[in-house]
């Protein structure tokens, strides 16, 4: 996907304005800035470009320095916007989504699942004995552990619609749209096993390695289903996993 498109206003078959309209009406390309280039000096032509969603307009003959500066300005603004978006919605340490993203986007996923009458899974995950890990090995190792666990969770999830959020210090929550109960349970256990297989030493754990506990809930959401409610329910099963000996997954279908 290009970061910028430069369009000639007048082209055979499909003119620049029509092409620009098509690009701007497609969700996957709408964010790409477009610069028009034309020999026309008519204000009406320039108006048409702006109205179609142009980011800029350059008249022929082309002045190299002006073209370079305008392209640089537009691309630098785009890069700043992309970085800010990433910083707004992602956790700086682990690179997974943050709670702000959860509150902004997950309610929409729930509505889609409700409308499509699909299952929706929520898995709460907590690293066992993480305080002991930090106290024993230090926060630098703790950070590395968090990154490895986050990466492992991401690696288990293969579908782009599955979402991993760092919920708190050592807590993660996974959202699994359109996932049946068997799939949710399978993925939660697969994550548990994959973290165990990382074989990160933790002498404060009975297993001597870093493990996780998880609680999940699978539901067919309705218009009244709230994200917080599902998280709280999954959290109750996480608590059961903790009190039942850790390094396990418990859950329910409602």
């Amino acid at each position: 996907m290009p970061d910028l498109i430069i369009l000639d206003l007048n082209m055979p078959n499909l003119d620049g304005i029509t092409l620009c309209n098509q690009i701007k009406s497609n969700l996957t390309t709408a964010h790409i800035p477009i610069i028009f280039i034309t020999a026309s000096v008519l204000p009406s032509d320039q108006d048409r470009c702006w109205e179609a969603g142009a980011a800029d307009f350059i008249a022929k003959p082309i002045v190299a320095s002006t073209l370079l500066h305008r392209v640089k300005n537009i691309l630098q603004s785009k890069l700043r916007f992309e970085l800010l978006t990433e910083q707004t919605f992602k956790d700086q340490l682990t690179g997974v989504f943050n709670r702000h993203y959860l509150m902004s986007e997950v309610p929409t996923l729930l509505k889609v699942s409700s409308r499509e009458k699909q299952f929706f899974g929520v898995v709460m995950i907590d690293i066992d004995f993480f305080k002991g890990f930090n106290d024993t090995y230090g926060h630098v190792e703790g950070d590395k552990c968090l990154k490895m666990v986050a990466k492992t969770i991401q690696n288990v999830l293969k579908r782009p619609q599955d979402i991993v959020v760092r919920y708190g210090g050592e807590e993660f929550v996974v959202f699994l749209p359109n996932t049946p109960p068997s799939g949710c349970k399978h993925l939660a256990n697969k994550i548990k096993d994959a973290v165990f297989d990382l074989n990160i030493k933790n002498s404060t754990s009975g297993h001597q390695v870093v493990t996780i506990s998880g609680g999940y809930i699978v539901t067919s959401p309705t218009a009244d289903t709230h994200t917080e409610e599902l998280i709280n329910q999954a959290d109750e099963f996480l608590f059961k996993s903790k009190t039942n000996g850790r390094n396990q997954i418990q859950g329910v279908v409602i």
Binding site: D3, L7, L79, E86, Q87
Partner: peptide, 16 residues
């Protein structure tokens, strides 16, 4: 963990 893309990583499509 943020990857910062630079200007040289960018691409432009010229349609003319």
């Amino acid at each position: 963990n943020f990857e910062s893309k630079t200007l040289s990583d960018c691409s432009v499509l010229i349609v003319d």
